[in-house]
């Protein structure tokens, strides 16, 4: 693994250079205090120090709203939607975001492998970047350190305000051909980038905690604060639930079938045509969300389905914190264990 030094002031030149390998998508400022992944028009607009984007990079592979078919009501027929395979370079991606894409790969490609997702995912290259954890990041607690480079072709590690550029794959090597603003260097370990938010247990102990957490009192407390807006799940990089709806043009002749991101936190999510709602209460839904992250898929795949990006907490109007919930469950579990022991 080669490592090069790269001056901060030369990063825009690198972004321009990467444009030879596809459309470059990178974090940009959005609104007053937010960020979002956008197509790069001017490399100097790209933000290198950002906490998290509003929507995860998922939006580039599983779009928030996507046309599945176009139909004609007159002919009772439909046309297919061709998803083009276009080379894209995703620049300035944090490690937890990359990990979320790898998990999304599993969700969309295991069982029935979805062609739309696959095509968008093809020919994508990733350039990672380190980040300074804020009060919401807790990715280390779910096994994703800042410098986790799995999935990246290149990785920029910030060292003393400039960068060390790691070359991780042949694709990465290829992307640097002809770029001369880098110099071979010795990799350095960066100290002091500490996570402020933590889950108290190692993540491999969490499935056991969740095994006993189904009837915990914690859920009622969370439900009393949750206003059911769905922000946690709609901004989650590993959530992939969607709804499908038909839309008809005002001519009442043509229309399209669209899917859009959905949320298991919304009250109508599990309702069927006859009116039966299989997760009617908020308490059922808050629990389901956490079990999706730490139990159901985790039991099968051995990994938490949460990458610790902190979006669900940062964007919750009620300030409900996923790691806090997990820590409360841990505390409750410890108490229960203590009581079991003492009684014996």
């Amino acid at each position: 693994m080669e490592c090069f030094s790269l001056l901060r002031s030369d990063v825009p030149a690198l972004i321009d250079h990467l444009g030879d390998f596809g459309e470059v998508i990178a974090p940009h400022g959005k609104g007053d205090v937010s960020y979002s992944f956008e197509v790069v028009r001017d490399s100097s607009d790209v933000v290198l120090d950002y906490n998290r984007t509003l929507l995860p990079l998922k939006k580039m592979f599983l779009p928030p709203v996507e046309k599945l078919i176009g139909f004609s009501l007159k002919n009772e027929s439909y046309e297919q939607v061709d998803v083009a395979i276009a080379p894209r370079v995703f620049f300035g991606v944090h490690s937890y975001e990359m990990q979320s894409i790898l998990r999304l790969d599993h969700s969309m490609l295991s069982g029935s492998a979805e062609s739309n997702y696959f095509k968008r995912r093809q020919s994508s290259r990733f350039v990672g970047i380190s980040f300074e954890p804020d009060e919401f990041h807790f990715s280390e607690s779910v096994g994703v350190v800042i410098e986790e480079m799995e999935g990246f072709d290149l990785f920029l590690n910030e060292v003393d305000d400039d960068f060390q550029l790691y070359v991780l794959t042949d694709n990465g090597q290829e992307m640097l051909n002809g770029f001369d603003k880098i110099n071979l260097t010795e990799p350095e370990i960066v100290e002091g980038r500490n996570f402020k938010k933590k889950i108290r247990y190692h993540y491999n102990r969490l499935p056991r905690v969740f095994q006993y957490a189904y009837h915990s009192d914690v859920w009622a407390d969370v439900a009393s604060r949750c206003v059911g807006c769905g922000a946690c799940t709609l901004t989650c990089p590993t959530c992939f639930c969607f709804d499908v709806q038909d839309h008809v043009e005002v001519t009442a002749e043509d229309g399209m079938r669209q899917r859009s991101w959905d949320s298991c936190m919304l009250s109508t999510f599990a309702e069927v045509a006859g009116g039966e709602n299989f997760r009617e209460k908020t308490i059922n839904r808050t629990r389901h969300r956490l079990f999706r992250k730490f139990k159901y898929i985790t039991d099968e795949e051995g990994l938490p389905w949460c990458v610790g990006c902190g979006r669900c907490t940062a964007f919750c109007p009620a300030g409900i914190s996923m790691p806090d919930i997990v820590n409360e469950l841990i505390q409750e579990d410890e108490k229960a264990q203590y009581h079991r022991t003492v009684r014996v």
Partner: peptide, 18 residues
């Protein structure tokens, strides 16, 4: 049956609470 937040999030608006 869904709140305004859903459409707002899908448009990637900056949350007004933020």
């Amino acid at each position: 049956g869904s709140p305004v937040c859903v459409e707002c999030k899908l448009k990637e608006n900056e949350c007004l609470y933020n």
